[in-house]
Computed example of a mutant assay.
Amino acid sequence: MKGLKSIFLVLLIVFALVGCEYYLNFPQQTTTTQKNLAQLSEEDWNNLVKQVMDQVRAELLNEYQQGLSDVENMIINVVRAYGETVVGVSNYVRQNNVAILKSTGSGVIYKHIHDTSEYYVITNEHVVDGAQEIRVVLEDGREITAELIGKDAQTDLAVIKFQLTDSLPTAVLGDSDELVRGQFAIAIGNPLGYEYYGSVTFGIVSGLARDIDIDYDGDNVIDWVATLIQHDAAISPGNSGGGLFNIKGELIGINNMKIVESRVDDIGFAIPVNTVKYVIEQLELYGKVERPSLGITGRAVEDILYNNELIRAGVITGEITPIPNGITYGVYVTSLVKNGSAYGYLQEGDIIIKYNGIEIKNFDTLRLQINNAKIGDIATLTIIRNNREMTVSFPLKKRP
Rank of each mutant, 00 (worst) to 15 (best):
M1Q: 04
G3H: 13
I7V: 09
V10C: 13
I13L: 13
V14E: 13
L17T: 04
L17C: 05
Q28L: 14
Q29F: 02
N36G: 07
N36C: 07
L40V: 10
N46I: 11
N46S: 05
N47W: 07
K50S: 05
K50P: 01
Q51A: 11
V52R: 06
Q65I: 01
D70Y: 02
D70C: 01
I76Y: 08
V79R: 12
A81C: 03
V86L: 11
V87W: 00
G88K: 05
S90C: 06
V93L: 08
R94G: 06
R94I: 10
N97F: 08
V98Y: 01
I109G: 13
Y110L: 06
H112F: 10
H112L: 01
Y119N: 08
D129I: 00
G130A: 13
Q132C: 02
R142D: 06
R142Y: 01
E143C: 03
T145W: 02
I149C: 09
L157D: 07
A158R: 02
I160E: 01
L168R: 08
P169Y: 12
L173K: 12
G174R: 00
D175Y: 11
V180M: 07
G182W: 09
Q183R: 12
I188T: 07
I188S: 04
G189P: 11
N190M: 03
E195K: 13
E195H: 09
I204L: 05
I204R: 02
V205E: 08
L208F: 09
D211N: 14
I214A: 03
Y216P: 02
Y216K: 05
D217L: 13
D219E: 14
D219I: 10
T227F: 04
L228Y: 04
L228G: 02
I229F: 01
S240W: 00
L244D: 05
I247C: 10
I247Q: 07
M257N: 03
I259Q: 15
I259S: 14
E261P: 00
S262E: 15
V264G: 12
I267R: 06
I267T: 13
G268E: 06
I271N: 00
V273W: 02
T275R: 06
V276F: 01
V276E: 01
Y278F: 14
Y278D: 14
I280W: 11
E281N: 14
L283T: 02
E284M: 14
G287Y: 03
K288N: 07
R291T: 08
R291K: 13
P292T: 14
P292A: 14
L294G: 00
I296A: 01
R299G: 11
I304H: 03
L305K: 08
Y306F: 15
R312S: 06
G314L: 03
G314S: 03
I316R: 05
P324W: 12
P324R: 11
I327M: 11
Y329K: 15
T334C: 01
T334K: 03
S335R: 10
L336G: 02
K338H: 03
G340V: 07
A342H: 06
Y343W: 12
Y345F: 15
D350Y: 04
K354R: 15
K361T: 05
I370Y: 08
I370S: 08
D377I: 05
I378P: 07
I383S: 11
I383C: 05
R385A: 01
N386V: 05
N387L: 02
V392C: 01
V392I: 13
K397V: 09
R399Q: 10
